[in-house]
Design a protein around this nucleic acid. Structure first.
Length: 103
DNA sequence: TTCCTGACTTTAC
DNA sequence: AGTAAAGCCAGGA
């Protein structure tokens, strides 16, 4: 929960609504592109959306959601993202080309 | 304290 | 283009 985790939460917390970011991208923003795995691991231990960590806005680099490991199921995650105005492709993937977070 | 595992990504075949 | 393997580092047992 210290250092990297906290930093990861802080960054994920800065993801604007209606926007998604990939694990690797977040890791890169933190200055550690190799810790991409840990970004996801941090989400696993994240306090949740109520804690200010919108883990549902964090998806794969391909725009795909975490299969089977989502906070409340991939379906719920997709529903939340759609509720934020994020468009999904027919493949069930997020339109990263349009909603990928940049900053 | 040591060993194992893990919401990923990238490179290589 | 698709599949396979390696690498990263910190938390949990």
């Amino acid at each position: 929960m210290d250092g990297f985790f906290k930093r990861t939460y802080d960054l994920v917390r800065q993801i604007p609504k209606g926007r998604v970011a990939s694990y690797g991208q977040i890791a890169r923003m933190l200055g550690e592109p190799r810790k991409a795995r840990f970004v996801g691991f941090a989400m696993h231990s994240s306090p949740g959306v109520a804690g200010g960590v919108p883990c549902h806005r964090v998806v794969f680099k391909d725009g795909r959601l975490a299969p089977g490991f989502a906070f409340g199921g991939p379906g719920a995650q997709r529903e939340l993202l759609e509720a934020e105005g994020i468009g999904f492709l027919d493949d069930g993937r997020v339109d990263m080309s349009t909603y990928e977070w940049e900053a």
